[in-house]
């Protein structure tokens, strides 16, 4: 029997891997700087929480979470297709603040700042739930591997390297950007759903800004456009984050200290090793 603590860590690592991998498809492979990925995780979490609390079975709520996040993702990609670089980054960052405002104020749906407690477990046994999230995580690794090595994946990378050239070669870059965002946000929604069913609770703090830094540092440390990199990045940085719990004595500043460490790691990587561990392109 594996220790409960280890089970919890491995469950979170599996869920984070799905989030970071899906972010890598958009940022690493397609070159769209999406800083609002957490919004789609949150949409998935809220969607499956609301469905599950109304008695919808989990296999439908997970799937619906993915579809809803994906619809939003495709819509955002369609609206922002003309933007690039830092303009795209700030619009997607802006989504985070819209999401906070909506989740705080649409009380009849989200119960505002109180959050939604009592989301049912998918599987009562934590060990079996860990296996379940690992399986979904492995499935997403496989699907993203297939996607990025397919012709579509090659077109994503062409858009990243030179969008004008890709469209000159007759590729509909508008369409492929939407596909990239839709695929990525589908898995973000699924990850959000897994998170909600695991924590049994979701509230507006899921859209915290430091979570964006956490995801970016995991993504960039692992390396852009590398699937191995994302998984390894999540493993190493999650282990680092957990080890801080044992180093810092004062429990009230563990969170703050963790944020500081992640921010410093992110800055150091950006300055000294922008490719991360397995990256194929510089950020």
């Amino acid at each position: 029997m594996i220790h409960e603590y280890l089970i919890s860590i491995l469950t979170f690592i599996s869920i984070y891997s799905i989030i970071v991998l899906s972010l890598n498809v958009v940022i690493g492979f397609t070159g769209l700087i999406n800083l609002g990925h957490i919004v789609f995780v949150g949409i998935g979490a809220y969607a499956s929480a609301i469905l599950a609390l109304n008695g919808v079975p989990w296999y439908i709520s997970i799937f619906a979470a993915g579809i809803l996040a994906s619809v939003f993702g495709a819509a955002i990609a369609a609206i922002t297709s003309r933007l690039k670089g830092d303009y795209l980054a700030m619009v997607t960052l802006g989504l985070v603040f819209i999401a906070v405002a909506v989740s705080r104020n649409w009380i009849s749906l989200t119960r505002g700042a109180l959050g939604l407690p009592g989301i049912p477990d998918i599987i009562k046994n934590n060990f079996h739930y860990m296996i379940f999230t690992m399986a979904i995580s492995a499935l997403s690794v496989f699907l993203f591997y297939r996607l990025t090595n397919s012709e579509t994946g090659k077109i994503f990378q062409a858009i990243r390297d030179n969008e004008v050239a890709a469209s000159v070669l007759g590729k509909n870059t508008y369409f492929y950007k939407i596909i990239s965002m839709a695929a990525s946000t589908f898995f973000a929604g699924i990850a959000g759903s897994l998170l909600a069913h695991h924590l049994n609770f979701v509230d507006p703090t899921i859209f915290e800004l430091d979570f964006i830094v956490t995801m970016l540092v995991m993504l960039i440390a692992g390396g852009l456009a590398s699937i191995t990199g994302s998984v390894v990045g999540v493993f190493i940085l999650y282990a680092l984050s957990e080890s801080i719990r044992f180093i810092v004595v004062n429990p009230s500043i563990v969170g703050a200290f963790r944020e500081m460490v992640f921010a410093v790691v992110l800055i150091l990587i950006l300055i000294f090793r922008p490719r991360g561990m397995f990256g194929k392109v510089d950020i």
């Binding site: 430091d210 830094v213 944020e259």
Partner: peptide, 19 residues
Amino acid sequence: ATNVVTMISSLALLIFSSA
């Protein structure tokens, strides 16, 4: 580095200072 990278590092500095 591109301006997006510098922007991300400034976000990290913001988070660092608040923490």
